[in-house]
Design a binder for these strands. Structure first.
Lengths: 338, 338
DNA sequence: AGGTATTACGCAACCGATTGCATAACTATA
DNA sequence: TATAGTTATGCAATCGGTTGCGTAATACCT
């Protein structure tokens, strides 16, 4: 077969040293143009391919960015990933993607694996139950850029890419109030996560601002899985409070609730108005269409990608790791109209 | 800071050779248990981490599997990926994922990049317009396992993981006919792709079997993007054929059509019955709920993963690369009921 | 032409493992 | 105890580049 040819083969053929070949191929300034041209054309002629393994070893870097997401099969996450991949790819980096499946344990293992395999940077969206962050210590200690996306935590020198969940929650809630809702329910995900707890804060602020009541019954913490819809419906029906406005932490769950409520003969939006979150494609296809908060997943991915790349290129001071907050947007559709 | 310690450090500390350390760490049979224990415990004590770069170079393999998908942000693809990731991760492999964005050019570049970065195997779901397969030649020549998923082609020694699209198309169509439809329209994706052309074959067979008419007007080739919905509606309204049954190549597009047809005052399913494809979460949330073909994305991912791993482990003969066909399933919902 | 500054290149160490082959150490057998 | 047979280890080459340092070769200047 055709054994891979190396810089040594080239060097021998051309009668120069391997160092010269290497420098020529990397366009090093201390090599004459003439020599570079000779080397490069011979390299093409012989079909030379650089061996990444050797480069990695000698440079101690992999041109690879690690990513840990809770689940790949979520429309939001895969959209974020699409953005990240685009930027990384354009910058010549490969993406190693792994999923924590919402488990801190698996997140830990993945973080370790990626660290061991020598990623140059790590992007993370935290698992559902991550409460400890020691598994990122190695990255920080070794100054490997570490960036959190959406589901974040505050670690020294780590960037975060988020939206203003509190404000979004506030806006969504105030919209419901403006449409005449008096008895609001926030159906939340795990409140240990910043995204959901922040939205709750916004929800509470809006409720307080308009002198509505907020107590335990106005909040339902759920795992947002389809299986939990019944529980939500039960809450709505049996709490005794005449709920007329729902703010649901994601569109998918909101759509399920919508469907179930219709089955229970609630009229949407007449009886109960609903605002979801994410602007999932689904939100525009259900009947009635679902009001929601547009959550710029793709842009988040793009920004996350750009942020890593610039940190890797040194164009951003690593110490000055910053936090980027993207703009969200309330999309008003049928499910919340008076 | 703490510089990484190497097998040489261990060797010096223990008074043995680097080779012995290496073999001990890898549980090589020719090392005594006593020595192994000493080495391993010292390694733990000093916090030894194996340097993957060096291992890769010396073994010329990366413990990494490359994946090229058309788009990350598709519910189907990300579900497949979730399955692949699970298996790969369990087997100790990392996944480098890249997207072709439905462009053969980018697919080519990605294939090359992944090849250069030394992936041990490649999983591919082809781009929309891929018509040439030279970019996979290197893999085949060098016996790097190459597996196609869903959107496949027939290359020597390459496995494929698919469903029986022709049969699925047949079943879906026959269902519509059984519900009384006489004038059927198949709204297809790019017919150069196996998935869509096979479904067309099934569609045609069913139509023929039941002595219905099939001509150009019964087929609409579309790019299935939301922007093309109007074109589909126009086709339905203006062709002069009183279409009463639609077989649509994916649920998302089907849902859009459904919505638009309702706007045009078609009654679904009374006037027109619809069957989609994929069992996208959306299909159960639209009104009326959408009949569809369940497409086992996660299982495809799992199988693809298992297939690669066993090829890499040599537990499957590389030459005997096989083609796996998964079972699909017709899910009957409201949109197609008499 | 002689001296100095540049430029272009070669040398060889280094990155951190893996592994075929040789051999020392130890066991078992006669 | 000498000898053959195992078993456990060391040696050193190898994987394929990168890079600091030294110097030969060429250019520039007076």
């Amino acid at each position: 077969m055709d054994k891979r040819i190396t810089i040594y083969d080239l060097a021998k053929t051309l009668g120069v040293s391997a160092g010269t070949v290497s420098r020529s191929l990397n366009d090093h300034p201390s090599i004459s143009q003439k020599t570079k041209d000779r080397v490069i054309s011979k390299a093409n002629e012989l079909g030379y391919k650089t061996n990444k393994f050797a480069v990695n070893l000698s440079k101690q870097k992999s041109n690879t960015i690690g990513v840990i997401v809770p689940k790949l099969n979520s429309i939001f996450m895969s959209t974020v990933l699409a953005g990240i991949e685009k930027i990384a790819n354009e910058a010549g980096y490969n993406l190693i993607i792994s999923q924590s499946l919402e488990s801190m344990e698996k997140e830990k293992i993945n973080a370790k694996t990626l660290y061991d395999s020598g990623v140059d940077a790590l992007l993370v969206s935290l698992a559902y139950d991550t409460s400890n962050f020691d598994h990122f210590a190695n990255y920080i200690k070794n100054k490997i850029p570490l960036i959190f996306i959406d589901r974040v935590t505050n670690l020294p020198n780590c960037s975060t890419i988020i939206i203003d969940n509190k404000l979004a929650g506030f806006v969504a809630t105030e919209h419901l109030i403006a449409q005449g809702c008096k008895n609001l329910l926030y159906i939340s995900g795990n409140l240990k996560q910043n995204v959901y707890s922040e939205r709750l804060k916004g929800f509470q602020e809006a409720v307080a601002k308009h002198n509505l009541i907020f107590n335990n019954a106005n909040l339902l913490e759920s795992d947002l899985s389809p299986g939990s819809v019944k529980q939500a419906i039960t809450h709505i029906k049996d709490t005794g409070i005449p709920f007329d406005g729902l703010f649901v932490a994601n569109d998918s769950f909101a759509a399920h609730c919508l469907k179930e409520l219709k089955k229970e003969n609630y009229k949407i939006p007449q009886d109960i108005k609903i605002v979801g979150f994410n602007n999932d494609p689904i939100s525009d296809l259900v009947t009635p269409t679902l009001s929601t908060i547009n959550y710029p997943g793709y842009e988040m991915g793009i920004l996350a990608g750009q942020s890593v790349i610039s940190q890797l290129n040194g164009s951003i001071d690593f110490q000055a790791a910053n936090s980027i907050t993207l703009r969200h947007e309330l999309i008003i559709r049928e499910s919340s109209l008076k």
